[in-house]
C-alpha cells in the first residue's frame, strides 16, 4: 500500500488518507473484505494523530467503503456499483485539477484539446 501524506498539500490530512485508501480500493490493492490497518498502526506509520485517522475511517464508513467490526478493526467494503462511481469521481477530481493548472499556465481550451490528441498517439 502506497500511502504518504503531503504536508504542503492544501488538503487536510484526513482527506488525504481517505483519498489514498479509495485509490487502493480502485486499483485493486484493497478488496472487499480486506482488513484496514488499525488506527494505531496507520497513525504510527503516517505520524498522524490517531483522531485524524479515526476521522478518516469514520468518513469512509459513512461513505460506505468500510465497515467497523467492533474489537477487530475495520474491513473494506466495496459496495456494488460504487467502484465505478468512485473511479469516476476521482478522475473528475484529477481532471479539474489539471484544467486549473493548465489555465493558470496560460493555456486555452483548444491548446488543451490538442495536448490530449497528441497524447493519444
Amino acid at each position: 500500500m502506497n500511502l504518504t501524506i503531503d504536508a504542503k498539500s492544501p488538503l487536510p490530512a484526513y482527506q488525504q488518507v481517505i483519498q489514498a485508501i479509495k485509490l487502493e480500493i480502485l486499483s485493486g490493492g484493497l478488496r472487499d473484505g480486506d482488513p484496514l490497518p488499525s488506527i494505531r498502526d496507520l497513525a504510527k506509520l503516517l505520524k498522524l494523530n490517531p483522531n485524524t485517522v479515526a476521522k478518516a475511517y469514520y468518513a469512509l464508513a459513512a461513505d460506505g467503503f468500510s465497515e467497523n467490526r467492533s474489537g477487530s478493526g475495520s474491513i473494506v467494503r466495496v459496495p456494488p456499483g460504487r467502484r465505478d462511481h468512485l473511479r469516476q469521481a476521482m478522475l473528475e477530481g484529477e481532471f479539474r485539477n489539471f484544467l486549473e493548472k493548465a489555465v493558470s499556465l496560460g493555456f486555452s481550451l483548444e491548446d488543451i484539446t490538442q495536448l490530449i490528441a497528441r497524447a493519444k498517439k
Binding site: 504510527k44 490517531p50 483522531n51
Partner: peptide
C-alpha cells in the same frame, strides 16, 4: 518516541 505516544493515545 512518537510511536509510543501514538500508542498511548489509542490505548
Amino acid at each position: 518516541f512518537i510511536e509510543a505516544l501514538i500508542e498511548a493515545m489509542t490505548a
